[in-house]
Amino acid sequence: MIQASKMYKSFKDTPVLKGVSASFDKGKTNLIIGQSGSGKTVFLKCLLGLHGIDQGSISYDGTELDKMTPQERIQLRQDIGMVFQGSALFDSMSVEENIMFPMQMLTNKSEGEIRDRANTVINRVNLIDANTKLPSEISGGMQKRVAIARAIVMNPKYLFCDEPNSGLDPKTSIIIDNLIQEITEEYQITTVINTHDMNSVMEIGQKIIFLENGTKAWEGDKEEIFSTDNKSVSDFVYSSKLFKRVRTAYLNKRKD
């Protein structure tokens, strides 16, 4: 479980996070949603420790990030997997080398063991015939799968995904969403996903946190988001006609 308490973060004189508190549960897909500029990415990077926070605290399974010894921080880093918005694959390495990379750098396992583990996760994310290809030679959807495989190769306790569906078509997006949810439940990982894809919200939103202007404006799950009377959330989630119709149909069905 990851717990963020009253987090404040500013860049120069511009406050980005204004006292955000949230908890992210183990074995669930926890979504952070909000408009562009609402502070989602900064919040995620603060949770990861890539940005320091001005006030507040972040704890991983009860241990505060600020109070961790350098050794504990190194261990925590190895327990974290991250899927970046643009996948952040290493251009000069093949798919297999990208996935093997964290194990080569951080473990003392033999080349054979590392290759076996890499191939296990490659099969898990259904990457077929791509081992020797470079990231530039595969599609965006496959790049996301490689990024997910690289993120889970070290058996992380925590998985962070920054807009994993950006640039993907709706069908591939749902496949990636479902893959993340399956992996989360299978390995009992605490997964935090930053998104503004409403399909993801409806599909895998087991816990949803809505950020608005650097504050937490709403918290719930994908069922509660249908019936919320929070105007900011409704305006954001049901901004398209399609989703408005879906919501009306859902609420009518519940009345019946």
Binding site: I74, R77, F84, A88, F90, D91, M105, L106
Partner: peptide, 22 residues
């Protein structure tokens, strides 16, 4: 620089790799 703008350096840091050293 390309590694920086494509978040590859962030990826290394998240993994716990000393990026100056690497």
């Amino acid at each position: 620089g390309t590694m920086r703008v494509t978040e590859q350096i962030d990826a290394l840091e998240v993994m716990g790799i000393n990026t100056y050293n690497y």
